[in-house]
Design a binder for these strands. Structure first.
Length: 626
DNA sequence: ATAGGGTTAG
């Protein structure tokens, strides 16, 4: 950190570049500036005119070459000690579209005695750059020099810590804030909250929130984003209700809506999402592209593709995100052909696809079994669009090839990846091995997962499923024994169903719900009804068979079944049952929902990790994969 | 004195 040490004047750098890069705006303004500066009469007005010109010159510059030219101009015509000029320059340098932090730093180092404002601007620039730690160094330098700091200085430092996810650094700044007596500054506390939230310290974030003297919309927004990040999605809906109910002393704004829509998406609550949509229209946020895009995602991921499309159609300006949201929405809903149509329409509209567009297109192909098309797009993305495939793209391709039974090809693709394959990719292939009962490859994949030290209970269950599907019961017992001995923890499956804005959460063999007796009675009844209709429980593939043995339950239920039973119980006949599940729905629950949809004449929509399952009249939208 | 702060779509 030698920013303050040097007081050099490297004018030559700036001057030499002046002639080489030409910019009409800059040269015109420079001419005016020189003329104004040179005018002998009334020096005060002339110089203030020149100053205005210089300021507007700074304001209009976006490229580093412009900055250099202006830098030279500043050095030639005025002193660096005129703070407004240097401040504006610093801000511009740091926040121009290109974000020239290094340039700002060089300029900063030439200021002999930076003011508090100049320090702050420089720290702010660092906090948003790729080297936020430099901001903290500068802050320490300030304290070493005995410079005064204000809440702004701290808030930029907090921002740096947030970006670095440095818990200890942030805690230190927090301590300083308290010592400096700045703990009643609302904006500073909001930044601090966000910091704790990003570091997954939800409780500490909430503690800061509780201590805030007053809370504005942004503070509530940060609380909501904290809930989202820390898996308290259900509380997000409650906060939104409280806000529109006037209990928070402030109204939701566009950012609130973005957050709440995200919550609706992950909980699969179409109804609440619609409510947010209405609110958006009421508040006149109709033209906000981010909100529209978020609505497209919410509607499509809640299984309401027609509404998603209506929002899309109604947009005056559509960007890549809008198109990608539509494409991956169609993909999730099993409408692969239409997703490809949308992609082609996007190209016709001269919108350039990016990485996430390709993820959507490729997942559309894999969800709909369009092998040739998928291969074509995969090759095309590097050839025609110069994009290197990332892990997501490879993941889609492995899924596509694997489901189609081209297991060896999928394996080769993984081995050909330039980057190291992650556990997700191997897991995808393992899933395909289960579908196609490929024992040898399944074992090899599990070996790769063990290599990565990333094997989870679910992986062993998949392997177990492969063995049981070929009738190798010895191996099944062996794997079970291994799992039991090593005490591998299973990720608890969790299903939510939301009724009237209240989120009901179920886990395997849940005994926590108020209406548990009713639910279990209902499950028994549903079970016997479905049996008549030809439903056969597929216990061999079930993870909960373990708990069946261990806990001695007569029957063990996945959270999906519990939530479905509750849905049948708590909603009038004919109502669509919407669930969200954190894992991947199993074959048995899938069959269960399928038969139930026809016997009880209910539409059931389940969203799991990767896709949306529409069950209706005994069929599922992704029927062919089970 | 001058400028400057927190949350944000696929």
């Amino acid at each position: 950190m030698k920013l303050l040490a040097s007081l050099n004047s490297n004018r030559s750098v700036s001057l030499s570049s002046f002639s080489s890069s030409s910019s009409s705006l800059v040269s015109v303004l420079s001419t005016v500036l020189d003329a104004g500066h040179a005018r002998p009469a009334s020096p005060s007005s002339g110089s203030s005119g020149a100053r205005e010109h210089l300021l507007s010159l700074i304001k209009s510059c976006a490229h580093e070459s412009h900055l250099r030219q202006i830098h030279a101009r500043i050095l030639r015509t005025r002193s660096l000690e005129e703070p407004i000029i240097s401040l504006r320059f610093l801000s511009r340098a740091a926040f121009s579209p290109a974000g020239h932090v290094t340039y700002a730093a060089r300029f900063f180092s030439q200021i002999r005695k930076p003011s508090l404002a100049e320090f702050n601007t420089m720290i702010r620039a660092y906090s948003r750059s790729d080297s936020p730690e430099e901001g903290l160094y500068l802050y320490r330098e300030m304290r070493r020099l005995g410079e005064r700091t204000d809440p702004l200085t701290s808030s930029f430092c907090i921002k740096s810590c947030t970006k670095m996810e440095s818990l200890t650094g942030g805690r230190q700044i927090h301590g300083r804030i308290v010592r400096d007596g700045h703990q009643s500054d609302n904006l500073l506390l909001t930044a601090l909250m966000d910091f704790y939230s990003v570091c997954y310290k939800g409780e500490e974030a909430c503690a800061v929130f509780d201590e805030m003297p007053e809370r504005d919309t942004v503070a509530w927004n940060v609380l909501i984003s904290c809930y989202l990040r820390n898996r308290r999605t259900r509380d997000v809906l409650a906060v939104f209700d409280a806000m529109i109910g006037g209990e928070c002393g402030c109204q939701p704004d566009d950012v609130t809506c973005l957050h709440v829509l995200q919550a609706c998406t992950s909980l699969n609550v179409l109804e609440f999402g619609g409510k947010v949509h209405e609110y958006i229209e009421e508040r006149g946020y109709g033209d906000a592209v981010k909100l529209r895009n978020s609505l497209i995602t919410m509607y499509s991921r809640c299984g309401s593709m027609d509404k998603a499309f209506m929002v899309f159609k109604g947009m005056r300006v559509k960007n890549v995100v809008s198109w990608s949201a539509l494409i991956s929405g169609l993909a999730m809903n099993g409408k692969g052909r239409e997703a490809i149509e949308a992609y082609l329409a996007m190209l016709r509209a001269n919108v350039v696809p990016d990485d996430q567009t390709f993820t959507g297109v490729l997942s559309a192909c894999s969800h709909s079994g369009l092998v040739d098309e998928g291969m074509l797009f995969f090759e095309g993305m590097s050839k025609d669009f110069k994009r290197t495939p990332n892990v997501h793209h490879y993941g889609c391709m492995v899924d596509l090839l694997g489901r189609a039974g081209l297991l060896d090809q999928a394996y080769e693709l993984i081995m050909s990846m330039s980057s190291k394959p992650d556990s997700m990719i191997w897991r995808t292939l393992l899933g395909a091995c289960r579908i196609h009962r490929h024992v040898a490859l399944g074992e090899r994949v599990l070996w790769h997962l063990t290599e990565l030290k990333a094997q989870e209970a679910g992986d062993y269950v998949l392997l177990l499923n492969i063995y049981s599907s070929v009738g190798d019961w010895e191996k099944v017992t062996e794997v079970r024994k291994f799992m039991k001995e090593t005490g591998i923890q299973t990720t608890p499956g969790c299903t939510t169903i939301t009724l009237n804005g209240i989120v009901h959460e179920f886990t395997v063999d849940d005994v926590l719900h108020l209406r548990q007796n009713e639910i279990y009675t209902m499950l028994d009844e549903i079970g016997s009804q479905l049996k008549i209709a030809g439903y056969v429980p597929e216990i061999s593939s079930e993870l909960h068979n373990l708990s069946y043995e261990e806990k001695g339950y007569r029957l063990s239920y996945h959270s999906e079944k519990l939530a479905i039973a509750f849905g049948v119980l708590a909603t009038p006949p004919g109502t669509t049952i919407r669930l969200a599940n954190n894992l991947r729905i199993c074959v048995d629950c899938h069959n269960f929902a399928k038969v139930l949809s026809s016997v009880y004449d209910r539409m059931v929509i389940i969203r799991d990790r990767s896709r949306l399952h529409h069950f209706q009249g005994g069929h599922c939208s992704c029927n062919d994969y089970w």
